[in-house]
Design a binder for these strands. Sequence first.
DNA 1: AGCGGTACTAACTTCCATGCCAGTACCTTA
DNA 2: TAAGGTACTGGCATGGAAGTTAGTACCGCT
Lengths: 131, 131
Amino acid sequence: MEVSTADPAHAMRLPAALADGVFPAGCPSRTLLDHITSKWGVLILLALSEGGQRWSELRRRAEGVSEKMLAQTLKTLERDGLVSRKAQPVIPPRVDYSLTERGYELSALLVPLVAWAFENADDIINGQRTD
Amino acid sequence: MEVSTADPAHAMRLPAALADGVFPAGCPSRTLLDHITSKWGVLILLALSEGGQRWSELRRRAEGVSEKMLAQTLKTLERDGLVSRKAQPVIPPRVDYSLTERGYELSALLVPLVAWAFENADDIINGQRTD
DNA sequence: AGCGGTACTAACTTCCATGCCAGTACCTTA
DNA sequence: TAAGGTACTGGCATGGAAGTTAGTACCGCT
């Protein structure tokens, strides 16, 4: 049976390919989505959207990230072709991380989302009773 | 593969307020982001972006979600003012969920992101890139 | 000589999100 | 009578994400 809810004016329709609204469990889309919406994934992508940065700078910007999670997340993102790693064989080591073309494509979509969250967060989260 | 390290043309700059690229640990923005980028949060928001739906329909669309997680996620989203719940006191029970104004604002940003993930997932996750 | 910075890796542990199952209450259909 | 659909809630279990600690290799500073 149909739910007769009027489509609001600002409803955004999904591409036909995901007309169901959601894709099947275990498909590549879910995996990718998990990578980019992971706790540190978003933050790192976001930080890198401002330009290439070194390991230690990323550590500072993604406040609270452990070295382990930074390494792990960067590795995943690199494997996905979203981040590129450039190590210079100098001493002390110097490694620069930056977004790839694809990474910038993503960040162009991610940034507005995060900006929205930033703008609405106080209003939404602080207005709640915490018990 | 060309990776532009110095401010590519399509680099999207963050709003000045989050010039650091990332916000501090434990701030409301991170909490909100966690809610909406949670495993089931995205899927449910996405499903609802197509219009109001009943509990059982959401269960089917967000393939793989357990009743517990569906309830929990919906509750969080409702608390955040992104989803509205309308229960009709009939028997058998009938409850409709839909996005609020704010929820639609969010989904307008979320949908392109998910669509992008959907389009790129095969390519990225299954390994092969051709550029 | 010893400390700190740079960029990591690995092993071990903790903890929470998630999963699985059982129960509730009422009605309908077989 | 019993099974099944609707919309949940609560308890226990667990797996994987995340945290913690330590170690590596080299250099520059004091």
